[in-house]
């Protein structure tokens, strides 16, 4: 069960950290900042972290959310970690395509496939 003030649901499976968003819309700045801080704190505790971020609950995101994902990507890279994104709605995937971030991130259809790719 997630803590009352967290914006994430986190579980660990075979040393892979799996993160899901509580909110359907990742739009407002304060929320995005909070999410970024929570995920960066998770990465900080791991050496060579393996992280899957699932968008299964997400209906909307903004460029500020994309910026936070890139910051997470850069942090993962600095720690020689592996990052996968999963369960991205087709409308949101289109945002990744327009911004060409589908080339920067490794994106999988499902969390299971994303986790399997890290084993």
């Amino acid at each position: 069960m997630a803590q009352a003030d967290t914006r994430l649901r986190v579980r660990k499976e075979d040393d892979v950290v799996h993160v899901e968003f509580v909110d359907r819309n990742i739009l407002d700045e304060a929320n995005i900042q909070r999410i970024g801080e929570e995920i960066l704190a998770l990465i900080e505790t791991e050496s060579e972290p393996r992280l899957v971020i699932s968008f299964s609950n997400v209906d909307h995101l903004s460029s500020a959310a994309l910026g936070t994902l890139i910051t997470i990507h850069n942090k993962m890279k600095a720690k020689s970690g592996s990052l996968r994104l999963a369960n991205i709605d087709p409308q949101i995937y289109e945002v990744f395509v327009i911004t060409k971030l589908n080339k920067l991130f490794e994106i999988h259809d499902t969390s299971e496939n994303a986790i399997a790719s890290l084993k």
Binding site: S63, L66, T68, I70, H73, N74, V95, T99, K100, K103
Partner: peptide
């Protein structure tokens, strides 16, 4: 252009592009 290779890993500068798109 935020999609250029040298700017792809910068965490900002995509809002205007999305508005246009």
């Amino acid at each position: 252009d935020p999609t250029s290779e040298e700017r792809l890993e910068l965490p900002h500068g995509r809002g205007l592009m999305l508005m246009r798109a």
